[in-house]
Write a protein that binds this DNA or RNA. Structure first.
Length: 147
DNA sequence: GCCAACGTTGGC
DNA sequence: GCCAACGTTGGC
């Protein structure tokens, strides 16, 4: 799950303990939240659009998809005037901090790992802010981040 | 700050 | 339903 650290970083999550993952305005990701996220699932935190791009820690899903309230807030930058309370468009999940890696697993490093050659993460022009990982991929990143 | 790639919007 | 224009993402 990607976030720009200037907006929300792993340190912010560590401080808060938990966070509702709002602001997703992409239907593919919305559907993933709705259909594929379960309580107890693990996720990796990825810092995008910054000086040290890569995976920085682990988190855990503690609540399944619910309505993202920022879509109704006209002052919020994620406000969606076309969404209605009777049929909300956008969802978010709640995650809990698990750990911050000793070392950021950089995007460059991930590109070198064969396990990731088919991952959308390393594909040019990829714009998904949330994507699926196999258990092997997940474990590999955790191993690299911990050592 | 640049810009390629992509998703979305809206006129037709 | 097509597609040009536009806005956003995100690596560089």
């Amino acid at each position: 799950m990607k976030s720009e650290p200037g907006e929300f970083s792993i340190d912010d999550l560590a401080k808060n303990g938990r966070e509702f993952w709002d602001g997703v305005r992409n239907y593919q990701v919305r559907n993933m939240f709705r259909d594929e996220f379960s309580v107890g699932d693990k996720a990796l935190f990825y810092h995008s659009n910054c000086s040290k791009i890569g995976v920085v820690g682990e988190m855990k899903v503690i609540q399944e998809a619910t309505t993202d309230k920022t879509q109704f807030d006209s002052k919020n930058k994620h406000f969606d005037p076309k969404s209605t309370k009777s049929a909300p468009r956008w969802l978010g999940v709640t995650v809990e901090f698990v750990s911050k890696f000793k070392h950021t697993v950089s995007l460059d490093k991930i590109k070198e790992i064969k396990l990731f050659s088919d991952s959308p993460l390393v594909k040019k022009g990829n714009r998904l802010s949330v994507m699926k990982l196999s258990k092997k991929q997940y474990d590999k990143i955790v191993q690299l981040g911990s050592k």
